[in-house]
């Protein structure tokens, strides 16, 4: 474990990522303390430019709402949806991939055709259709993101399990009379953990991008202030008020960047043999 931290902290990008993410998480957690008022409330005149009033450093939007407060509450939504939808995608993808990879044959064929189908369908378009038809709210958004993001998990897990399946220690476990369930649980899955962790961190990033894109198109939960919604609402007034779309975009960029950096750091630290050996 200490080896892991040593390798992880040697990666400068990953450390920067952790710092950025820590700030974002902190802001999200402290949002109700820092901005006790609802982010939907009008606090000043509309289109107040940034830095013109100390109290509202990032200005106000077309309805006079505080942009900074919106960003803080948006962090909550982004992180929540990113993490929950990734967890849901893992819950679907890991069992499917593990079963397909371990049992092979017909089970593999059926499950992989199913996965392939979801992978071929343009994912963002499918997410739009799902959210639109089931009414935009936080549940439908999380479900839609999970539905379009589990296939890579299934494929990854299947590939790993497939290669572990023919590993000699798994064969030894079969010969020693352990049941399939025990073998999958004790011998196979623990050894797929590192690539899953790496993929999951990148998936949270992708989920945040997806959520913001949906909200941008007006498919966000109408009760939640989100970064994508803020940019979408500001789209038509971009000529008058650039800051309304600029700052939420930077917030998304930084959060997603941080997660990607962490993902790469994890990858290097968890798979040291693959990481830039010798350069």
């Amino acid at each position: 474990m200490s080896d892991f931290w040593k390798r992880f902290s040697r990666n400068r990008g990953a450390v920067i990522g952790v710092v950025i993410l820590a700030v974002v998480v902190l802001v999200a957690v402290l949002a109700p303390v820092l901005f006790p008022q609802s982010p939907w409330r009008m606090v000043q005149r509309p289109f107040l430019p940034p830095l013109s009033m100390d109290q509202y450093p990032l200005g106000t939007d077309a309805l006079g709402r505080d942009v900074l407060a919106g960003l803080a509450y948006g962090a909550q939504v982004s992180l929540l949806i990113g993490v929950v939808s990734t967890a849901a995608a893992l819950l679907v993808g890991i069992p499917i991939g593990a079963l397909a990879g371990y049992f092979g044959g017909v089970a593999d064929d059926v499950l992989m055709r199913f996965t392939e189908f979801f992978q071929t369908v343009p994912s963002f378009a499918l997410a739009i259709v799902l959210v639109a038809i089931f009414e935009p709210n936080i549940q439908s958004i999380i479900a839609a993101i999970a539905i379009v993001s589990w296939p890579p998990v299934a494929r990854l897990v299947r590939g790993e399990v497939l290669s572990l399946r023919s590993r000699e220690y798994v064969e030894a476990a079969i010969l020693s009379g352990q049941t399939s369930a025990t073998i999958i649980w004790r011998q196979v899955l623990p050894n797929t953990l590192s690539p899953i962790i790496v993929l999951a961190s990148l998936m949270v990033a992708t989920a945040i991008l997806l959520e913001s894109s949906l909200s941008f198109l007006g498919l966000g939960d109408p009760n939640l202030m989100s970064w994508g919604y803020m940019i979408g609402a500001a789209r038509t007034v971009i000529r008058q008020a650039w800051w309304l779309s600029f700052f939420p975009g930077v917030a998304i960029l930084l959060t997603v960047l941080a997660l990607n950096l962490i993902g790469e750091g994890l990858n290097d630290a968890l798979n040291p043999s693959l990481a830039r050996r010798g350069r």
């Binding site: 000699e168 220690y169 030894a172 079969i174 020693s176 011998q187």
Partner: peptide
Amino acid sequence: RGSIQMIFQDPYASLNP
């Protein structure tokens, strides 16, 4: 299965890390 066992080739792949 217990009555017939195997010793494998690759000492690095035959033990669960």
